[in-house]
C-alpha cells in the first residue's frame, strides 16, 4: 500500500514535465541563420559550441552560443545547411535549414535542395530585392511561432507517459505468463 502511494506520488509529481534533451532551432532571416539551442523543458544551452555544416557534412564555420543560447550566422550562398550544437556534457543536437528558406538573391551553392527553382540572376534586380525584403519581414514575424511549435513538439504528453507505463506492465505480464507456464523447478 505504501509502495502504491509512493508510486502514485511520483506519477503525480511528474505531470506535464519536460524532457532533459538538447534541442536546436534554426531558421533563415534574410541571409542570416538565426537560432537558439535549449534544453527541452529546461534552460538555454549557454556558451555551447556549435558548427555550421554543409549538407554533405563539411564544416563551414564554428561558433559559440550566447548567454541566451542564441546564435546568428551569416551565410554567403543559397544551399542546404546543417546546424549542430554540442553542450559538452554528452548532449548533441542537429537541425537543418533548407535552401528554400534563404533569399533568392544569394548565389546558388552546391547541394541545394531546390534544383527546380529559377536560376538566380547575377545581380539583384529591383524585383528580387523587393521580394527579399518581404520574405525577410515575414520570416522575422513567424520566427517566434516556429520556435513555439518546435518547443511544443518536445512536450511530454500525458498519453505518452501512460502508454509507457502500460507497455512496461504488459511486457512484464508476458514475462510472468511465460515463466508461469514453464514447469516449476523446486
Amino acid at each position: 500500500m505504501k509502495r502504491l502511494l509512493l508510486t502514485a506520488a511520483l506519477v503525480l509529481a511528474a505531470s506535464p514535465a519536460l524532457a532533459h534533451k538538447l534541442k536546436v532551432f534554426a531558421a533563415a532571416e534574410g541571409a542570416t541563420i538565426v537560432g537558439t539551442a535549449y534544453f527541452a523543458g529546461g534552460g538555454k544551452a549557454q556558451n555551447s559550441t556549435g558548427r555550421l555544416l554543409a549538407a554533405d557534412g563539411t564544416v563551414l564555420t564554428e561558433f559559440r552560443t550566447d548567454a541566451q543560447g542564441g546564435f546568428r550566422l551569416d551565410v554567403a550562398s543559397r544551399q542546404d545547411y546543417r546546424v549542430a550544437v554540442d553542450s559538452g556534457d554528452g548532449h548533441v543536437a542537429e537541425t537543418r535549414v533548407a535552401a528554400s528558406e534563404l533569399p533568392l538573391s544569394l548565389p546558388m551553392g552546391e547541394g541545394s535542395s531546390t534544383p527546380s527553382a529559377p536560376a538566380p540572376v547575377a545581380a539583384p534586380t529591383p524585383a528580387t530585392a523587393g521580394t527579399d525584403a518581404i520574405e525577410m519581414a515575414v520570416a522575422r514575424q513567424i520566427l517566434p511561432l516556429r520556435q513555439q511549435i518546435d518547443a511544443l513538439e518536445e512536450r511530454t504528453r500525458f498519453s505518452d507517459i501512460m502508454a509507457g507505463i502500460g507497455t512496461i506492465f504488459g511486457v512484464f505480464g508476458i514475462f510472468a505468463w511465460i515463466a508461469a507456464r514453464r514447469p516449476r523447478t523446486p
Partner: peptide, 22 residues
C-alpha cells in the same frame, strides 16, 4: 519488477533545476 520499472520510467520526467541545465 514491473512497478519499479514504471517508477524508473517516470522518474526521469521529474526535473530539478540545477544551474544552467536541469
Amino acid at each position: 519488477v514491473a512497478v519499479l520499472s514504471a517508477v524508473f520510467f517516470v522518474a526521469s520526467l521529474i526535473h530539478l533545476p540545477a544551474g544552467p541545465a536541469s
